[in-house]
Design a protein around this nucleic acid. Sequence first.
RNA 1: GGAGGGGUGCCAGAGCGGUUGAAUGGGACGGUCUCGAAAACCGUUGUAGGUGCAAGCCUACCGUGAGUUCGAAUCUCACCCCCUCCGCCA
Length: 427
Amino acid sequence: MLDIKFIRENPETVKKAILEKAAKLNLDALLELDAKIMALRKETEEVQAEANRVAKKIPKADVAARGEMVAQGKNLKTKLTDLEPTLRNLEAQLRDLMLEVPQIPWAGAPVGADESFNLEIKKVGTPRVFDFTPLDHVALIEQNGWGELERISRISGTRSYALKGDLAVYEQALLRFAFDQMIAAGFTAMTVPSYAREEVFTAHGQFPAARDQVYEMEGSELFLSGTAEVLLNSLHADEILAEDDLAAAYVAISPCFRAEAGAAGKDTRGLIRVHQFNKVEQYVLCKADSRESEKWFDTLLANAESLLQALELPYRLLETSTGDMGTGKVRMIDLESWVPSENRYRETHSCSALHDWQARRANLRYRDAEGKVRHAFTLNNTALATPRILVMLLENHQNPDGTVNIPVAVQPYMNGKTKLEMTKRRS
RNA sequence: GGAGGGGUGCCAGAGCGGUUGAAUGGGACGGUCUCGAAAACCGUUGUAGGUGCAAGCCUACCGUGAGUUCGAAUCUCACCCCCUCCGCCA
């Protein structure tokens, strides 16, 4: 959400953002509605003030004069019962429109309506040249008895996964590895529920636009979150923090759920796109200052890069275009890791700066050094998400004999094991 | 799941349907005093919107929403949350 005052004063800037982000929103209609509300609100407040004056005088008035005054109060009340519902209705309409106003993208973002305009800005590592015919991750899992991909789909449906043997342990090891790395980087460790109320998703920005991507738990008014970011963003909702409380940098681990509506038939094979996964997430709440935000953006990005480097994966950075970064974002860089079987990079991380867009929705504020109450800025990035990262780890680190090497950095989390080995059958 | 108690400002806590945006205490901040500090004393300590050069004034907010009333923190209803006891339980 943007500040309505900012929108009033900078309609052209906002219109440009709407255009660049390919949003469907009529800003003139929004401004017209806003003007209408301002006028109606003024009228209503004047009647209310008059009604308050009358009501205040009644207890001090002569008993004889009271009848007349009560009648006057009743009359004003009738006027209010005409005005107030209309006002409230218009305000609700404006709120709905305000939720759709995009954040202004930073000047450096490539302008374009979709991901085809994204710009590769950095490449680290070189894709491995195999001197044997490498397998894809599904084949590796099947050959080594590292999962129950077919059986679990019969139980839980498509886009489900079940891991077995060393790979089941590896998933947990990676999550803990990433969690520890982030704690070492000074982030506060957290666990959060994977579900929350509707208003939490609205505050985050996922509702109303992407509501169909979220599972609703019938009969409970709760929804399953696709990322811990949703929950973290509302942790301090409606509070006014002290400036000293900022920046708050959290690393949270949680199971994540995504409906993947509209992705039918896409990435149905293997571990790339599943309904339930695990994610270690970086989330930062900082002062309302673009330089501060930039500083944290760089930090979140560096954290993700150092994790990928520790995992010995080739990756690249994409500066995402205005149309691909999402409604609420100022800037987004996707980190994509190399997938040998597809001969291309695929997204494993996404680093975002939103300035006050989420904070306004969540009413996340702090008191600055001058005592002024301001909306904070928020940022987030993946630290590590499984099982998708397993696709890259399995395929890039495979050996001719079908075993898979474990990066040195993760070996301590695997009890010193250096390779993932075939699951032994027990008769 | 059953029974009860409660949600007021940074915290604790008062509040007959009418000058209560809210007593009192604590904390925090500023000042006096002091070489400095403590103590003591004095003062300050809402959020959002509107209006005004400004001082100020107006409107809303005492968990949330609806209602009763000329007037609601105070009455009614629904919902949310917290606490205690019992039951069940990883």
